[in-house]
Design a protein around this nucleic acid. Structure first.
Lengths: 133, 133
DNA sequence: CTGGCTATTTATAAAGT
DNA sequence: TACTTTATAAATAGCCA
């Protein structure tokens, strides 16, 4: 599509931003299409050089609250515990970093991260429910 | 590309899988391209109907361990705490779900989720470091 | 399920406004 | 700086192996 370009970083700032904007749009469009046509749950995230985040999530989460047996719940709980532990370890690691003067962008990113974690778990849970149906 | 198709779920199982496979490939290719050309960190994830996960992450994480001041660390810690709390709440919510007879796919999904959480935090941390540079 | 082939439809790098 | 247009390169639906 368009004149061919080298697969390397576009040095011209303006050109790079334009390309990013255009490609991001079609990438998200494609993600939407595959989610609809193939009935899949997809997520796309991009951290731009300027620190901003672009994301797309096909929100086709199943409704919550559906009771059932607890056959393998132990395993699931174990995994969740492990994830929680990872978070705590990472929390400790974070102490080695310097936040810097600006704090808004990073806090936004952490907020995103937070939502991402939530959504990831929700996807897993939704998949868990649908896979047994 | 190809003969036009309706933007709706492809009912023919085989056709749907073929389409998913092909589109997934080009989607990941596009993700790789935008990550290189535009120097962005991207991630793409797809939960297929059959329960499998496809993902792509441009792994351009910054190296860890770089000391600095703790100016806004309080805020960061607060956010992390909040995320951890979310996880605990979600963990509680998980009790309302039934894992089902099959457990492998879901555990894999949780493993992915775990890695995703880790990677998300690492990206946030990396961005945190690079943004102050 | 992968992998080509081909006819079409999209995506898009550049240039124009 | 942001659309619009244009020329070209890619992506891909339908088939076949």
């Amino acid at each position: 599509m368009g004149r061919k370009i080298d697969m390397k970083k576009i040095e011209d700032i303006t050109k790079c931003q334009v390309t990013f904007s255009k490609r991001r749009s079609s990438l998200i469009k494609k993600a939407q299409e595959i989610s609809v046509c193939c009935d899949v749950d997809v997520a796309f995230v991009a951290f731009s050089p300027s620190g901003r985040i672009s994301k797309f999530c096909s929100q086709k989460r199943k409704s919550k609250r559906s009771l059932g047996n607890f056959t393998t719940l132990k395993n699931l709980e174990l995994q969740i515990k492990k994830s929680t532990l990872e978070l705590q370890i990472l929390e400790a690691d974070l102490r080695d970093y310097e936040p810097g003067p600006e704090q808004e962008p990073s806090l936004h990113q952490l907020s995103w991260c937070e939502r991402n974690i939530e959504q990831s778990l929700q996807r897993v849970m939704a998949r868990k429910v649908s896979s047994k149906t």
